[in-house]
Design a protein around this nucleic acid. Structure first.
Length: 99
DNA sequence: TCGAATGACAGCG
DNA sequence: CGCTGTCATTCGA
């Protein structure tokens, strides 16, 4: 779908060491379906090309990564993003607005 | 704190 | 083939 595809593309636009939010992606896609963004990522048929772990809630939390949220947190840490519990440290600094 | 809105997918009839 | 329920969220009262 064009919608999902755009979601993945927008997600890939996020540079390493940064994170984005579902809201930002939804706004970038000119849509209000924040859930749809996560939904598309959830069934993302792509490989690590789409770092869905780089997408977090607007609160700066990992949100609800059901598939090993802890593992994704570790990935973010490797990128330079500190994740305390389920919270991103310096979320504002790590947050990257997608054009 | 709870409900509504949105996009996509799975299951059921 | 068509409809309903569910899901990784966010906003408003």
């Amino acid at each position: 779908m064009n919608f999902s595809r755009k979601v993945w593309e927008t997600c890939s636009k996020v540079p390493k060491g940064k994170v984005t939010t579902y809201k930002a992606i939804a706004e970038a896609l000119n849509t209000k379906a924040y859930r749809a963004v996560g939904n598309a990522l959830n069934k993302n048929p792509h490989s690590p090309k789409v770092p869905c772990h780089r997408v977090v809630n607007s609160d700066g939390r990992l949100g609800g990564f059901r598939s090993g949220a802890k593992k994704k947190a570790a990935m973010l840490k490797e990128e330079g993003i500190e994740v305390k519990g389920n919270r991103i440290v310096d979320f504002e600094k790590s947050f990257c607005s997608i054009r």
